[in-house]
Design a protein around this nucleic acid. Structure first.
Lengths: 160, 160
DNA sequence: CTCCAAATGTTATAATATAACGCTTGTTAG
DNA sequence: CTAACAAGCGTTATATTATAACATTTGGAG
């Protein structure tokens, strides 16, 4: 399991590598990474924070890429369906995927102080939720797993 | 672990027992279960489904208990804070707690076909999310764990 | 009885999201 | 080449979810 987001890292490389992966995946799967979609992915990648659809729209409209809500929502829908981004239900916001290419049943750690979000790539239908589903005869199609709290940097001091 | 919601059960008893528990808990903790709050809890208990704030408001206004959104939101906020109800983030909706009195880190199984919701009472910050948090040094304060899929009754046939 | 805190009533508006429809563009079959 | 089609985009309008703010009422403590 890898959890990306809180520790320092080479962010420039993390952005450009992910863009490259997204491009090659679009080529391979016949998906179209149009200018608006590409720019929204870049905006999300620029921070390990969740951005609201209207935050995105603000950037797009400042750059002449679109002024109305559907522009942002369509791009976000595309990115989420393609697996390039995730929606954070607890925040009504969106974040770039940091585990592009891997299987996918993401869990998120959301800091209430600095708003940073880390994505933890666990395998699906395992853990407690999977146990509960099996016990109840429930067939899982999609999971929302989000924890809110304090990231290492925002804790009172003495915690690592 | 108990998961309530999909299996048939004595629903009348399940409702009245929960109301009784809520009342005694309010008495014990000096909380006020006012008419609006009590009615909202009854409405939520009446179904093992999540109801939107405006669904609730519709019932309240039909019964002369209030006509404006804040009426519903205040009652729901009270019930959630008191632990009598939970908010389902993936649906922007609310559901009565089926594990009243127990510790609390609920996980939900949400059927996309019949909209029923089961609450699984796990003792959380354990499982995958807990592992990820510990590995990252993240301090969990609240968790959102929701699975969407098909309940036993809504599966194609042959699955139990 | 008065004061205070909690709850409620009410108006207004904010924030998030989608329906619907027409235009443009890029691809493909003829 | 070009007609036909699908996907994407521009735009208007509106739906859905949620909260800010302030006046009024209620219930209990002193």
């Amino acid at each position: 399991m890898t959890t990306i987001g809180f520790e320092t890292h080479d962010h420039h490389a993390c952005v450009s590598e992910t863009m490259a992966k997204a491009e090659s995946r679009c080529a391979a799967q016949d998906l179209r990474l149009t200018p608006v979609r590409r720019r929204v992915l870049e905006l999300l990648l620029a921070e390990h924070r969740a951005l609201g659809a209207y935050d995105i729209l603000g950037h797009l409209s400042a750059e002449g890429l679109g002024t109305q809500p559907p522009v942002a929502y369509r791009a976000l829908d595309f990115l989420v369906k393609a697996g390039f981004a995730h929606r954070i239900e607890a925040l009504n916001a969106y974040i770039a995927c940091t585990h592009l290419g891997k299987d996918h049943a993401p869990a998120f750690l959301i800091c209430r102080s600095c708003q940073s979000v880390a994505e933890s790539g666990t395998a699906l239908t395992q853990g407690r939720l999977g146990d509960a589903a099996r016990a109840a005869g429930f067939q899982i199609e999609h999971t929302v797993v989000e924890a809110q709290g304090l990231c290492p940097a925002c804790q009172p001091q003495d915690a690592a």
